[in-house]
Design a protein around this nucleic acid. Sequence first.
DNA 1: GAGATTGTGGGAAATTGTGGGAAATTGCAT
DNA 2: ATGCAATTTCCCACAATTTCCCACAATCTC
Lengths: 152, 152
Amino acid sequence: MTAFIGEFNCKLDEKGRLSIPSKLRAQFPEAVGNTLVVNRGFEKCLVLYTKEDWLDETAKLNSVDDFMSPDIRRFKRIFTNGANLVQMDGAQRILIPKKLLEYAELTAEVILVANGNKIELWDQAVYESELNVDAAEMSQLAQLFHQQRNQG
Amino acid sequence: MTAFIGEFNCKLDEKGRLSIPSKLRAQFPEAVGNTLVVNRGFEKCLVLYTKEDWLDETAKLNSVDDFMSPDIRRFKRIFTNGANLVQMDGAQRILIPKKLLEYAELTAEVILVANGNKIELWDQAVYESELNVDAAEMSQLAQLFHQQRNQG
DNA sequence: GAGATTGTGGGAAATTGTGGGAAATTGCAT
DNA sequence: ATGCAATTTCCCACAATTTCCCACAATCTC
């Protein structure tokens, strides 16, 4: 499983194309070729996966049979909703589908943030307000994280 | 087994024809040719299969013996009953049978969503309400999924 | 600073989505 | 059987989108 590192400022052009920074592209495993998967994130951002990692994610979902229950079907849908295959063009750019641009409210200025095997894509303004935490809140969040991690 | 990726906004024209997006068509295995199977989904949507995957699906059903119970027979009948073979025309469109249009309440605006080896077809409005979950429900669903996965 | 690489923009060609006309086929009723 | 209506198929045409390509600007490397 891939583990990406880094945070990058990028621009979207008028056509909704995003140029993948070379520092990030260098981290893609060979096998990626030029195909990625974009999906909606839980927050107001998009998420990029290598195709392989995406298939791993969904394989987990698909291991559970659809006959089982409506809730299972619903869960799978919610989870995969929005996913799109995207291909890099000759200039290492991907075209972000319109729908997703709108969802994440992406303007020209965006940020790419590595997060494990995922890469999040935020509008710069949105991202900054998301990161805007004071020390007290941060330590509270850390505490919560710790608790939830230990209770599984 | 095929694993489709993607979510697509499409339009049905007045004749009830659905143009299969090229991104999706590109994911069909060669063998598909231009023949698909449409069936009713459990929810208010339709489901597309490659012919091959449909045959697998029915094979699974038929592995359960009809002698078993009336309910088994009934379920098989109802499940299989809605299935239709459809062929793509020269413009990669399929004609959705009237009955199925009505069943899923499809209007002009529809959505195609990959779901494992199936492709679901929703009316846009219906789909959006299906996806509309709050955080509490989501975490409940996730929990359910987790349980059911582990009990197989 | 010079040369290579990378990011950005945009024009033009190719592909795709969409609509609709008209022929071919089907089903139904007379 | 024959004619009519409805459906389906096949075809062409236009608009929108996507892809491909080239060129210039910015940045990095040596």
